[in-house]
Design a protein around this nucleic acid. Structure first.
Lengths: 114, 114
DNA sequence: TGACAATATCCGCCAAGGCGGATATTGTCA
DNA sequence: TGACAATATCCGCCTTGGCGGATATTGTCA
């Protein structure tokens, strides 16, 4: 049950919920997340580290860029929670405006123009 | 998304997960929870208040006894999380021993022998 | 190699919330 | 009403973790 508490702790913060909601779209680079969330770089990076440590996301480096994606091979609870998040966070206006920011950033500058 | 974060915050504590797992069995009196969890009365009561404030449980007084049960009429997310909890916490040994403690207390002293 | 860009980590500060003993509240019953 | 039992709340203490600016790390490319 300790493991489960750790998994839920990661969800007990609005910024991390927003990050997970964005990652449901697919893999994203840190600079894309910063642009979509409109948060300072250190804050964004700290939350990503938290999500990594609690088993929610995986990272992979590609040159200077770090890409984060939802962790596919983790605790079954995480997988089922992902479905719930997809269903319940998508409606949120916080999420749709973040998505717009993301699309705009991707069009204007592209991921490699970070 | 703030609402969702509040819902998940309630799950971000092992004691509260244990309480919810017990309440999946049905309505319980505070003294039964104290016996099953083997926690101080003030600690137990505080967590119950937290669960009440975050929409997870309802209470009802019956004489001197306060009974707590899962809140049926809340956010859809809570209902779906209840199913997940039932599936994922039931296996935990922390839960099965708490259940034994509960059964023992109910047999030995009964809820009104608190 | 040196400069730069992307990211991670460090730092000091602060609020939320965990703990359990002490106290207050509330309902019951003689 | 007074005593008691069940529960809630208060209190002081302490840890976790939020924040964002400053600094360290790491990879790239000329």
């Amino acid at each position: 049950m300790q493991k489960e508490a750790k998994i839920f702790k990661a969800l007990a913060d609005e910024t991390r919920l927003r990050i997970l909601a964005l990652l449901l779209e697919g893999e994203l680079c840190v600079c894309e997340l910063i642009a979509a969330l409109e948060l300072p770089q250190s804050t964004t990076s700290r939350h990503l580290a938290y999500l990594r440590n609690s088993g929610w996301v995986q990272d992979s480096r590609r040159g200077v860029w770090m890409y984060y994606r939802l962790n596919e091979s983790e605790h079954a609870l995480i997988q089922e929670l992902n479905s719930l998040l997809a269903k319940h966070l998508a409606k949120s206006s916080a999420h749709t405006t973040a998505l717009e920011k993301l699309r705009h950033f991707q069009k204007e500058q592209g991921p490699q123009a970070c």
